[in-house]
């Protein structure tokens, strides 16, 4: 599997990564070689093998519906880049 420039641009957009114009050829080449490595697995015959998402095949545990997290806004927003009136600020959201 070999990627071209437009593939890389599309993926970078989906992942919201700004990639420097000059770096695109290197990314294209690197990603293509990684995908070539990955493509080795297409030779494996996996037939009807069930996919393994979690190594222990365990099941979800449930949490009691009780409030354990009190208001910690001050502490949590101390590390925020832009806050006003308790809100996180971002460039205007347009619907």
């Amino acid at each position: 599997m070999s990627l071209d420039r437009s593939d890389v641009e599309r993926i970078a957009h989906l992942a919201r990564l700004q990639i420097d114009e000059n770096d695109i050829p290197a990314y294209t080449e690197n990603l293509s070689s990684i995908l070539n490595l990955i493509d080795q697995m297409q030779q494996a015959d996996t037939g009807n093998v069930a996919p393994l998402a979690n190594p222990l095949d365990a099941v979800q545990r449930l949490r009691a519906d009780e409030v354990t997290e009190p208001n910690q806004r001050e502490q949590l927003q101390a590390v925020a880049p832009a806050v006003e009136d308790g809100l996180f600020l971002v460039p205007k959201v347009i619907e």
Binding site: I11, L17, Q18, L31
Partner: peptide
Amino acid sequence: GEGFGAEVKRRIMVGTY
């Protein structure tokens, strides 16, 4: 783009793809 380094960006892109 500025906060992540090259290897992290590579892997994010492989995973996204």
